[in-house]
């Protein structure tokens, strides 16, 4: 199968996946007690019964769950994600304005994770069972075990309160502003640490395994320098399992950013999602969830393509 057909097939596959995601999220959101209208009514006791019913109708919140879902999905398919209740903003507008912040955070977390994990993993594999390996394993284990909200708070404590190098919360500027990029370091490290730790461990294991293979002896027998053997022959083979893991970790980075954005008051989609859940902003919750799902599917697709690029034995099918 050609690469193009493979990508096309996988993209088509996202449709049923996103449909499933939307159904489940929709059901969960509606099954939680309370809805935006009751919240408005509670805040303003002067609203009459008739007005409440009219509000419900206006936001498509009357009728059965299935009817509501049908209305919602119909709108989404025609490109309308609805409005944020009680404000004039459209959901799509919020999404677009918050997206750069979230992408910046995720990318930084990713780059941080890879930059830390790959060299450390390689180093640990080469020096297997020596001091450096043991030390890096202990650090990795802590990295996996530490909850990210705690790590975030510690970074704020040290970086902002003790050292005074950063502000306590994200500055209110555009994302590409130097101040904002500087602040990005803290939440970026927080969101990337757990991923760095797991990637490092997989890197170490798979590299150590590859180092025992006969093609390594064969490469040595050819007289190639050790550095070249590691960086050219062994690394590429070890990366194959890392890519698979990295794709799976995308989901955890996304999930992690929800907490981290809240801790650092980072103005991204994750923080928006938490606020949306508090405010029963159904349209917003649905849109962010769908978007996240799409992104994760895309990351996996990317990983599969990369996987086939790294390993010529893999066929697209």
């Amino acid at each position: 199968m050609s690469l193009r057909r493979f990508i096309l097939k996988r993209l088509l596959l996202t449709v049923p996946i996103l449909f499933g995601v939307s159904v489940i999220t929709f059901a969960l959101v509606h099954l939680t007690p309370g809805d935006p209208i009751s919240q408005m009514v509670a805040e303003n006791p002067n609203v009459s019964q008739a007005e409440e019913a009219q509000l419900r109708a206006q936001y498509g919140l009357d009728g059965t769950l299935w009817e509501q879902y049908a209305t919602w999905i119909g709108n989404v398919l025609s490109g309308d994600f609805g409005d944020v209740y009680g404000s004039s903003q459209s959901v799509a507008g919020v999404l677009i304005s918050r997206l750069p912040e979230t992408i910046a955070l995720g990318l930084f977390g990713w780059v941080f994770a890879l930059v830390i994990a790959i060299p450390t993993g390689v180093y640990a594999a080469i020096n297997k069972d020596k001091f450096g390996d043991t030390a890096s394993r202990i650090i990795a284990l802590s990295g996996i075990s530490i909850p990210n909200f705690w790590l975030g708070l510690m970074l704020i404590l040290v970086g902002a309160l003790w050292l005074g190098w950063w502000d306590v919360g994200a500055p209110r500027t555009a994302v590409y502003h130097p101040e904002m990029l500087w602040f990005l370091i803290l939440p970026g490290i927080t969101v990337g640490t757990a991923a760095a730790a797991s990637i490092m461990r997989v890197m170490r294991t798979s590299m150590a395994e590859e180092l025992n293979k006969e093609y390594v002896v064969a490469a040595r027998a050819k007289g190639l320098p050790e550095r070249k053997i590691i960086l050219k022959h062994v690394l590429r083979n070890s990366m194959i399992s890392v890519v698979t893991l990295a794709a799976m970790l995308t989901a955890s980075i996304v999930a992690g950013s929800v907490v981290v954005e809240t801790v650092f008051n980072w103005p991204g989609l994750g923080r928006e999602l938490v606020q949306a859940i508090h405010g029963h902003e159904i349209n917003l919750i649905m849109a962010i969830t769908l978007f996240t799902g799409f992104f994760i599917v895309l990351a996996n697709l990317l990983a599969d393509i990369l996987y086939a690029v790294l390993d010529p034995r893999i066929r697209y099918d």
């Binding site: 006969e214 093609y215 002896v217 064969a218 490469a219 194959i240 790294l310 390993d311 010529p312 034995r313």
Partner: peptide, 11 residues
């Protein structure tokens, strides 16, 4: 080498 398949780097 004995086993060419393992002595060659698959990638």
């Amino acid at each position: 080498f004995q086993d060419a398949q393992t002595a060659l780097n698959p990638v």
